[in-house]
Design a protein around this nucleic acid. Structure first.
Length: 594
RNA sequence: GUCUCCGUAGCUCAGCCGGAUAGAGCACCAGAUUCCUAAUCUGGGGGCCGUGGGUUCGAAUCCCGCCGGGGACACCA
């Protein structure tokens, strides 16, 4: 059952069309919309029904709108209707329709806004998937917050959601990690090698020189003594130490990442290991399947246009026919050394998700992976075949961090690299999460540390939290006056005294929450929640401030217990919707701000 | 060179699978202050929605070209 009053009225309108013009095709019915009006003079909601349908009936839109209006006027939920502009049908709902939103909220509490839109379709949201080669930094943070909020949003919209993290533990980066960790081990047991001497012996030179690997070296030294090195404490044959060091480094890196995720309040239903998939033969099996479908061949790619990579040379490769599924070029599955490309493993991984029942896969990636979207979607399309499964990709743009008006440089070399943990310590989990959702994910963001912790209206986190705290403050004050503030009781309140425009505006906003959840979920845009809450908070603060000049708008009316109950019902419902929204964002509401 | 994202008020940004007079905060201007939380509030000015075409009842929104900015472009993940 939906609480979305716009959906309910849309059904009234569609029913009216079916009654008047039963031959109207489904395709036109689907285009009928009932949406909130911007201007209250246009009613509570407006429909494009006549503009969409009248053409097929060879009627003027205004004429058809009038016919629909006549049917709607017989509906007790409809107060009145008007035909306006080019043929909009404006609907003034009976006041009880709007007021009925409050007991709905009070009965459902934070669950209000939940939708059946998703129809329990299985959705897999994959995000973060940071390489286990170091601590999480700010770039990962945005993806983590966006992915987590999006997953919560999809769940709220009625999808059956799995939150998933892919551990990229199979590629060359993990080899480099092992070599780097081994250096820290040699240091821990007191090698005479210098870092540069060691690096010269590492294939490709040593990467990952950050100090965060020192504890890995110490752990290895503690567990294995000098048994992983030669007697002279120089690097031994990798066959002696490699597996041990890699396992230790991976496990400690993942532990650190999970700790960071805990601090951020991000929890996954499942961690998948790329290495496990490969060892299981998933990649080979997927390539076989694609081969059987005739989608694999050996060929040579054209060199990329523009600036040519220095070491480019024509080379025959195993290619996937991505161009058959909308990609620009076919894509390689094997590296020149014969091992699988990351793309090949990722295809297998997405096949695995589909095999586990995912109908909608959503991957949250950094924008630097944007060029990878169409090939992954092509592969998904190829493997999905007749099933409806498909892949959506949400890209997260760069986050620039500002402090004191200055850009904080993100350079590993300069040592000004901001980890997620640093940011959380400085700003706090809730402000980090909320602020990360104050921009569309595919737009670049300046994260202003000063603003994120400021206690002014400019800071949406504060403004929304403050609205909630004020609601709770009123409810506490009411309880002290022996007023029953339980939701069960308030849901029974007589609400007819609520009629000031500021009160009605607030109620209308609350009524829009279920619709917002559905639309944000369809658009895969969790940032809309943050904007909604900011506007909701604005409506509430506005009503509060009106109470300064007009004492009849204050929530606690000593002389009017019935009016007080109605107002408190509104306050309690407002707090519930704020909590409902914050829960999707993964932000904790505050009870009091003093 | 190709692909992709972005371009909306002085600034930072919403709105974008077509809807009516394009919104918010900051800044600016003018007022308010014995009050459930002044951690301010109310009101006002401010816009060829980058640009030129197209699609149609209707375009900030969809399509094409151009201008300007970010990002990505075999064998990394």
């Amino acid at each position: 059952m939906s609480n979305n009053i716009y959906t309910i009225f849309r059904n009234y309108v569609v029913d009216a069309v079916k009654q008047i013009a039963p031959q109207t095709p489904q395709s036109l019915l689907a285009k009928i919309d009932v949406s909130p009006t911007k201007d209250p003079a246009h009613g509570d909601m407006a429909s494009n029904v006549a503009l969409v349908v009248s053409g097929s009936l060879k009627l003027a839109p205004k004429v058809f709108a009038a016919q629909i209006a006549e049917v709607l006027n017989a509906n007790p939920a409809v107060l009145s209707t008007a035909v306006a502009g080019p043929g909009f049908l404006n609907i003034f709902a009976h006041k009880s329709v709007l007021l009925a939103v409050l007991p709905d909220i009070l009965r459902e509490h934070e669950a209000y806004g939940a939708s059946t839109l998703g129809n329990r379709v299985v959705v897999n949201v994959e995000y973060v998937s940071a390489n286990p080669t170091g601590p999480m930094h700010i770039g990962h943070c945005r993806g983590a917050v966006v992915g987590d909020a999006l997953a919560n949003l999809m769940a709220k919209a009625g999808y059956s959601v799995t939150k998933e993290y892919l551990i990229n533990d199979a590629g060359g980066q993990v080899i480099a990690l092992a070599w780097a960790a081994y250096w820290r081990y040699l240091e821990a047991i007191g090698t005479s090698l210098t870092e540069e001497e060691y690096s010269a012996r590492v294939p490709g030179g040593m990467q990952y020189r950050g100090e965060y690997l020192i504890p890995v070296g110490e752990k290895l030294a503690a567990d294995h003594g000098q048994s992983l090195a030669t007697a002279t404490k120089e690097n031994a044959d990798p066959s002696i130490w490699f597996e041990t060091v890699r396992e230790c480094a991976l496990s400690m890196m993942m532990t650190g990442i999970r700790e960071d995720l805990d601090l951020l309040g991000v929890y996954f239903d499942r961690f998948s290991s790329e290495r496990d998939l490969v060892l299981k033969g998933a990649t080979d099996a997927t390539i076989e399947k694609l081969t059987a479908m005739g989608l694999i061949y050996n060929g040579t790619l054209e060199p990329p246009k523009g600036k040519l990579p220095d070491d480019w040379e024509p080379r025959e490769q195993m290619l996937f026919r991505a161009t058959q599924f909308g990609d620009d070029v076919d894509r390689p599955l094997r590296k020149s050394d014969g091992s699988n490309t990351y793309f090949a493993n990722d295809i297998a991984y997405h096949a695995d998700k589909m095999a586990r029942g995912a109908e909608i896969m959503i991957d949250v990636w950094g924008a630097d992976h944007g060029g990878y979207v169409s090939r992954m979607q092509a592969a998904t399309k190829a493997l999905a075949g007749e099933s409806k499964a498909h892949l959506d990709v949400v890209l997260c743009q760069i986050v620039k961090v500002l402090k004191g008006g200055e850009l904080v440089r993100m350079s590993k070399r300069a040592g000004t690299f901001i980890t997620l943990r640093d940011l959380l310590e400085e700003v706090g989990r809730d402000a980090v999460r909320f602020t990360m959702l104050t921009r569309k994910s595919d737009a670049q963001m300046d994260f202003d540390i000063d603003q994120a912790i400021a206690q002014t209206r400019e800071n949406p986190v504060f403004y929304v939290q403050y609205a909630h705290a004020r609601c709770r403050s009123v409810l506490r004050a009411a309880a002290e006056q022996q007023i029953d503030t339980s939701a069960e009781s308030l849901a029974q309140a007589d609400l007819s005294s609520l009629e000031n425009e500021a009160e009605i505006a607030l109620i209308r906003r609350l009524a829009g929450w279920p619709r917002l959840v559905e639309q944000a979920a369809l658009a895969r845009e969790p940032h809309r929640i943050a904007f909604f809450l900011y506007e909701l908070a604005g409506d509430f603060h506005m009503l509060w401030n009106r109470g300064r000049d007009d004492s009849t708008l204050r929530f606690l009316q000593a002389e009017h217990p019935a009016a007080t109950r109605a107002k408190i019902a509104l306050v309690s419902a407002t707090a519930m919707v704020i909590r409902s929204g914050l829960a999707v964002m993964g932000v904790a509401p505050v009870e009091e701000m003093r």
